[in-house]
Design a binder for these strands. Structure first.
Lengths: 223, 223
DNA sequence: CGCCGGCTGATACGAAGGTATGGTCGATAC
DNA sequence: GTATCGACCATACCTTCGTATCAGCCGGCG
């Protein structure tokens, strides 16, 4: 049976309900200290940094999190850091804080997906509310990511043929039609199809179709 | 055959490739006039208004479009208008222009989905580029809307039972299991299933599953 | 070289899907 | 009251699916 099973069966999801981490990057130590207290008082885990570089040196953690970020930082500024976080730490929404915000900067930050853009002074409540929203998004992103990772792992364990068959089957073709497309016999299609179903851990065709959709499998049956 | 066919067969999609319309709402007539020229020079159809009310009085057109909007308007202001447009004219992305933009205003506008938020003075190129992006989004939104309308029309033609069967089938249950859930026999399930497939114009189970997903049909088989 | 994994195919059989034909029943519309 | 429609069920028949069993071919690897 080892030859037909998918990848590792471990379905152990990373501790999604761990204490959320709120990262703070601001070059003003008094801001860091006051935010640290505020964050702690809400039951979150604060981690503060004085610069973008310092923050990036920190290894990625696997927990719901968000980033409270000053736009104007020495060295790499907030917007530049945002670009990197957007690709490397997709599950870490960003809340900007700034003393000197201008409109174009705000637009850029928001277009890049920032949760909020707050100008000092702002009330604690506003910030906390933004953090809650951000952590919520982080949680959603994390679970979505975990799901996609699982799917991709399964998909990676398929052979080329199995993938082809899966795509065509998920597009609605009958086994015999798949065979026609691929130039093989129906019985062989059945074999590959069965393999694919097992490896993908799909327990119905409907399941497989949904998985194919999530994986973005575009099947283009030559019309 | 009339009893088993779906709703109207007209697949005629609205003229999606009509000339895009660019609406302008600004109380400054000189702005309206200059934008009108600029928009015309790009081959789009400009329509200008001096107030939000005037704009809202205008009936909704069926064409790719966008809205260039001054935030500070007499009466209903730009952000208020945005709220209404977001629900009534989903296919009309908004580009804000303003002389006096502040950061909170910008954040609100962008969070509500604005494409751009430009402060005067801005170059024509920046505005035109934003309009192109907006019209692109509009086109996408329109075709998505058209597709969803078609789906919902089909779905609306199903009887209650057919919908129940469709949901359960799309969730991966076998006919006999669907029958068990609903307390009816397998053969009856087959009948409803066949009806549903026809009315939804689905030509495979995979099709039906995808449609159910798009329609957001949550099937909760009692475990 | 032998072994393994991927790909292919055949036969066989039971399960499930799909459709046609035909009928009952109840509610609703005309 | 009759027609219509939705829901229900049955028998019959064929197609498609899913799997098991068996087997041949080929390329990579120790």
């Amino acid at each position: 049976m080892s030859s037909t099973s998918g990848p590792s069966q471990s379905k152990a999801s990373p501790k999604l309900h761990a204490t959320p981490i709120v990262f703070v990057v601001d070059d003003d130590i008094s801001v860091r200290e006051s935010l640290e207290l505020l964050i702690q008082s809400e039951g979150w885990q604060p981690e503060t940094f004085a610069s973008a570089q310092e923050f990036l040196a920190n290894p990625r953690k696997l927990a719901p999190s968000c980033l409270v970020l000053d736009v104007s930082l020495p060295g790499l500024n907030g917007l530049d850091l945002q670009k990197r976080v957007a690709v490397e730490r997709i599950d870490m929404p960003i809340i900007f804080i700034t003393g000197q915000g201008d409109v174009p900067m705000t637009v850029q930050a928001m277009k890049a997906g920032a949760v909020e853009f707050l100008t000092k002074p702002f009330s604690d409540d506003v910030l906390l509310s933004a953090i809650r929203t951000a952590i919520d998004r982080s949680q959603t992103a994390l679970s979505h990511e975990a799901e996609m990772r699982g799917l991709r792992d399964c998909y990676a364990s398929l052979t080329r043929r199995e993938r082809e068959v899966m795509a065509l089957v998920a597009s609605g073709l009958l086994n015999k039609q798949v065979g026609g497309e691929l130039g093989i016999s129906e019985i062989t299609v059945k074999a590959h199809r069965g393999q694919a179903m097992q490896k993908m851990k799909a327990d119905s065709l409907a399941d497989l179709v949904k998985m194919a959709a999530r994986l973005g499998l575009a099947s283009a049956p030559k019309s």
